[in-house]
């Protein structure tokens, strides 16, 4: 699956420099999109896991970068954010502030293209490391610790009123699907993404309705926590981090 880099900048030169980098990334990995304004960017964030990086220029286009960073983080928790600006337009304390607000890096517009590529590759590597580790994790908990998924034993464990976990047996596919939902709590997971991840090596019919069927089974097994899996009709599913 491709990873997308979003660029919000008025500087055509900077966008062009970034676009040129696509030729150096192995495996047709990156797709760049330019956005004329912040609202069109937010509306274009895909509801799947293809997001990698958002590079935005500090400019009058964005009246408050603190709010902008907060909004991006809220919309896409896994997406890294890079603030960029022309050297003359920012000072050191502003750069420190971007980073303290939640930006993951600061890039200077006009920096050497080779360095730009090296920094971009560092982000890709980091994302791959996170992905690899996530796939290796065998036991995960929901944020409120009320749901535990043990992938070794293919068992779901639900915290009961006595403070003990009650085990419930799952099938491999149910565990794979629940793993994606728990490890991406509060994020919308696209239907196609879920089908691709869980049924990619399966000879089982990949009819989209099979996903709904499995969700129905998992909801039942989650008992009172089943309602935490929200349906976004025509889009996908989201697991609420807390039992409301």
């Amino acid at each position: 699956m491709g990873k997308e880099v979003f660029v919000l900048s008025k500087s055509q030169e900077f966008c062009l420099s970034l676009k040129k980098l696509q030729n150096f990334i192995v495996g047709d990995f990156l797709f760049f999109s330019n956005f004329e304004n912040f609202v069109s960017f937010i509306n274009s964030i895909p509801l799947d896991e293809s997001k990698l990086l958002f590079i935005f220029e500090i400019s009058p286009l964005i009246c408050s970068y603190e709010k902008a960073i907060e909004l991006i983080k809220k919309t896409s928790g896994s997406m890294s954010i890079v603030a960029c600006a022309a050297k003359a337009s920012v000072n050191n304390s502003m750069i420190a502030e971007f980073l303290n607000c939640g930006a993951d890096d600061y890039w200077e517009i006009g920096m050497d293209e080779r360095l730009l590529l090296a920094k971009l590759q560092a982000f890709i590597r980091r994302a791959e490391r996170v992905e690899m580790l996530r796939s290796l994790k065998q036991v995960i908990f929901s944020e409120d610790k009320k749901i535990c998924l043990d992938r070794r034993e293919i068992t779901l464990k639900i915290l009961d009123k006595t403070g003990n976990y009650t085990p419930i047996q799952l099938t491999k596919k149910e565990a794979d699907l629940l793993f994606l939902l728990i490890s991406n709590e509060n994020k919308v997971l696209n239907r196609n993404y879920l089908l691709e991840c869980v049924w990619k090596d399966s000879s089982e019919d990949r009819n989209p309705q099979i996903l709904d069927k499995y969700i129905q089974i998992i909801r039942k097994k989650l008992n009172s926590h089943g309602k935490r899996i929200k349906t976004l009709y025509g889009i996908g599913y989201k697991m609420e981090a807390k039992d409301i």
Binding site: N92, S93, I95, A96, E97, L99, N100, A103, D104, D105
Partner: peptide, 10 residues
Amino acid sequence: NDIFLAKVKV
């Protein structure tokens, strides 16, 4: 110093 600290926090 401020940039360094902010980067470590990142």
